[in-house]
Simulated assay, not measured.
Amino acid sequence: MSTNERTIDATPEEVWAVLADGWLYPLWVVGATRMREVEPSWPEADSRIFHSVGAWPLVIDDSTSVVESVPAQHLTLRARAWPAGEATVVIDLEPADGRTLARIQEDVASGPGRLVPPPVRHLQLGWRNTETLRRLALVVEGRR
């Protein structure tokens, strides 16, 4: 799995508030372009959000589901973007002196993306998630 970390100038509860608002997903997830629906139980286990990925007019409608959820601590997602495939995304939040150490781990779970050699795949995911964490920090810190 590719792993990225960033310290966010907010509490884990403040970071979680952004993660728990499925309508904000395209603001911080690189590649997500719009939301179509958020299930009321999001981000509880087995709940889903329905989004589009890509750049207009080449967008793909798909979904992301919650595998595990511990409020203000841990979120495991299964992100779909077929025909590219599916990814497992693990987000952990740790308190750090009034701030939050946010960690994202991601790897392709199924589909054609599994054919990309792991070192190349992890390099690409690392770049993507550096920006994802930067965007998450901007949204969270901007709400303070």
Results as ranks from 00 to 15, higher is better:
P95M: 06
R121S: 15
L75Y: 13
V29I: 10
W82Q: 13
P118M: 02
V116P: 03
S110Y: 06
S41G: 06
V70E: 14
P112W: 15
L27I: 00
M35D: 00
S41W: 00
L75D: 10
R48A: 13
L24H: 04
Q124R: 12
A84H: 07
Q73N: 12
Y25M: 12
V67H: 14
I91A: 09
A87E: 12
D46W: 08
A84V: 11
I49N: 00
E44S: 10
P71T: 11
R103V: 14
G113T: 11
R36A: 09
P95T: 06
S110C: 06
R36C: 03
T64F: 03
D97C: 08
A45G: 06
D97H: 13
V59G: 03
E39D: 08
A79S: 05
S63V: 09
V59N: 04
G113W: 07
L77I: 14
Y25A: 12
A102R: 14
I60H: 05
R103A: 02
I49P: 02
S52W: 07
D61I: 02
P57W: 05
E44T: 02
T76E: 15
L123G: 09
P40C: 01
P43C: 01
F50P: 00
I91S: 06
P57L: 07
A55Y: 05
S63G: 05
P83M: 15
I91K: 05
V66G: 02
L24T: 10
G98C: 07
A32M: 13
A81N: 07
E44R: 14
A72L: 14
L101D: 12
V90N: 09
W28T: 01
V53H: 03
T100W: 07
G111T: 10
L77W: 13
E37C: 02
P40T: 00
G54W: 02
L101Q: 15
I49Q: 01
Q73T: 15
A87V: 12
E94F: 12
L58G: 05
P26G: 01
R80D: 06
T100S: 13
D61Y: 08
T33Q: 05
E106M: 13
P118N: 04
E44V: 02
L75G: 06
P112D: 01
E86T: 13
L24R: 14
S52L: 03
L58F: 03
R78Q: 14
E37Q: 11
R48N: 11
L93Y: 03
E37L: 12
V30A: 08
V29A: 14
P43A: 04
S41I: 00
A96L: 15
